[in-house]
Every structure is written in structure tokens, then in C-alpha cells.
Amino acid sequence: MDSVIRLILLCLPVVMIIGNDFSVNQTECLEGVVGKSIDIPCSFTYPETYKPRKINIHWRRNDRFGEFIFNLSRSYIHPHYRGRIDFLGDPIWKNTGTIRISHIKQSDQNLYFCLVEGKGNYTSGWQSNTGTLLIVRGQGPTPSPAPLTPSVTAATSARTGEDEDELGQGVILIIRCALALGMLAIVWLIGIYLMKSREVTIHPIEGSGNRPNERRVDQTEITSRNL
């Protein structure tokens, strides 16, 4: 508050001149976004007969006679804007007093007026009648996820095809293994069958081997009887 009062007292001797020879040009309306930055441009002119040795730039808010938020020569920045106002103008060579407000807040929505103060053969100050209305809007909705690009879709399709090929090869391998096992089982059964058949054939031959002995016994008995 003390700083504001000092600035007002400083500006009391300044003669406010608004006319064709002294003018301040500002954009009527600007729109900013919360969290972003915005430049509020200001340019001015003065008559050729006026020879300022020094030019200072002030900025007010609310109305033409509102509170000061910026003073170039005193490096003053209102506490609400501290660390968020940068001076982009060149008052001496380009006749500009543009400022930038960073990290915009919803409470920054207001009217802003640029006041030019010149010190030369006499002290004068002039500013715009309308100022610049800054409208602040909130950030937009969160964007929806982007659709899959053709390359991603193609890669997914290719991977699906590879999975199908691997599945088909697995099924074929299982079928081949089953067939091989089936063939082994058939061969094993045939071998068992042949072995059983051979045992049946050999049995009568073993029985016939006893017949000579039996016959020999019969002949002995017959010989004994003859004696």
C-alpha cells in the first residue's frame, strides 16, 4: 500500500495529456489461458516539438485511475504479479511499453492501462482511454487418446499372424508325434502276436519227441515176452 501511495504522489505533478499529439495505442481485448503467458502490447507517440530526456512506463488495472501494478523506472511490480511480469518494450527507440504476464491466473482478468510519462522540456503523461480487457479462460478438456496409427495396427496384425503360424505348427507337431506313437504301438502288437504263434507251433514238436522212447519201451516188452 505504501508503494502505491508513493507512486500516486509521484504522478501528481504529471500533466495528463490526451490528444492528437500525444497518444497511447492498446489492443482493445485479449484472451489468455490459465497457466499460460500473454503479451499486452502498448505503443505511443508524441509531437516532434517534445524532446523527452527520459521516458517511464506505468501500468494500471481496473480503470484509468486504478492501482498501479508496474513501474519501469522504480522496478516495481504489484505483489499479485510479482515474478510474473516482464517488460518487453523499448520506450526510447521504438516507443513501446509492452509487458508480458506469465502463469496467468483467473484473477488476472481485468482492464489494463498503459501510462507513458515523459520528462523533457516539461513533464507530461498520457494514456489510453479504453485500455486492454484481458479475458482469462480455463484450460480445455484433456484430449482423448490418439487412435492407433496404421504402423501400429499393421505391427499388431503381423504379430497375430505369427502367433497363428506358431499355433498351427504346434498342432502339426502334436499330430506327427501321435502318429509315430501309434505306429510304434502297432509294431509292438504285431511282434507279440508273432511270438505267441511261434510258441503254439513248437509245442507239438516237443510232444512228438517222446514217441521214440515210448516205442522203444514197447519193443522191449515184446522181446521179453518172446524169451
Rank of each mutant, 00 (worst) to 15 (best):
S151E: 14
R82M: 12
N56A: 09
R176D: 14
E162H: 10
W93E: 14
P79M: 08
Y81C: 07
W188Y: 14
Y122W: 08
T96W: 03
V136I: 12
K51E: 12
Q169E: 08
D163L: 08
H58N: 13
E67C: 06
S128T: 03
T98Y: 04
E117W: 00
E48F: 14
F70R: 06
L115D: 03
T132R: 11
W126P: 07
I85R: 07
I57Q: 08
A155I: 03
N110R: 00
I174N: 05
T156H: 13
I99A: 03
G120H: 10
E117S: 08
G140F: 04
F65E: 10
G97L: 08
P47H: 10
N71L: 09
N95S: 13
T149L: 02
R64T: 14
W126S: 02
D63N: 11
D108V: 06
D86V: 07
K94T: 07
E67R: 11
P52I: 05
T149P: 05
I101P: 03
Q106W: 09
L184R: 05
T160I: 10
S151A: 15
R61Q: 14
G66L: 02
C114G: 04
C177A: 15
E48W: 15
P147K: 02
P79N: 03
W59F: 10
I92A: 08
L181N: 10
K119R: 12
T123G: 02
G125D: 00
I175G: 12
L134T: 01
T98L: 04
R60S: 07
K94H: 08
G83H: 06
N95E: 02
P145C: 00
I77G: 01
V136A: 04
A154I: 10
Y112D: 01
R53V: 10
K51M: 14
V152Y: 03
E166P: 00
I77N: 05
L167K: 12
Y46M: 02
N121I: 03
G140R: 06
I92Q: 14
G97W: 11
I85G: 12
G131W: 01
K105F: 11
E166H: 04
G170E: 14
N56S: 12
L181R: 13
T130M: 09
P79L: 06
W93Y: 11
H103Y: 12
S157Y: 05
N110H: 03
I99S: 01
R64W: 11
R53D: 09
R64N: 14
K51T: 11
K54Y: 13
T130G: 00
L179R: 13
R82S: 13
L181H: 04
Y50F: 13
N129D: 13
R84L: 09
I99V: 07
R137Q: 08
I69H: 06
N56Y: 05
D163T: 09
G118I: 05
F70L: 07
E48M: 14
R137M: 08
T149Y: 05
S144G: 08
G120D: 03
P79Y: 06
S102P: 02
T123L: 04
R137P: 00
G66N: 00
S157V: 07
M183T: 15
Y122S: 12
A154F: 13
R60Q: 12
S124R: 08
L88R: 05
P91D: 05
H78G: 02
